[in-house]
């Protein structure tokens, strides 16, 4: 078993067009490292140079926003489902 990761349209250039990919890792940070090994460049779109989750990317583990779970340190186990969605945001300034 592995962790299923749903990739949004805008990031599918990193996954050869795949909507769903699989990975492994005991935390979200480790999962993203694992994915980046096969889908080079994906990590840079999710994590800032300072090592934090990008402010305008939403990541959900089993439908919970990881900002309320432990961010990149959120623990994962086989069978978990991870969803990535770009935040929809903007403003007049």
């Amino acid at each position: 078993m592995a962790i299923e990761v749903r990739i949004p349209t805008i990031l599918r250039t990193y996954t050869d067009g795949s909507k769903v990919v699989e990975g492994k890792g005991d935390t979200l940070a480790l999962l993203i490292d694992d994915l980046d090994g096969r889908h080079t460049g994906l990590k840079g779109r999710l994590i800032t140079d300072e090592g934090a989750l990008h402010r305008f990317v939403n990541v959900y583990v089993n439908d919970e926003d990881v900002r309320f779970l432990g961010s990149l340190e959120t623990p994962l186990k086989d069978g978990d489902s991870v969803t990535v969605l770009p935040a929809v945001a903007g403003g007049s300034l």
Binding site: R67, V88, S92
Partner: peptide, 23 residues
């Protein structure tokens, strides 16, 4: 109609949980 999680006159951001449900 989405909730503006920022509730701001100069910024908007979809509420993340609502966005997941809608998507």
């Amino acid at each position: 109609e989405m909730d503006n999680a920022e509730r701001s006159p100069t910024f908007y951001r979809f509420d993340s949980q609502q966005q997941l449900r809608v998507w």
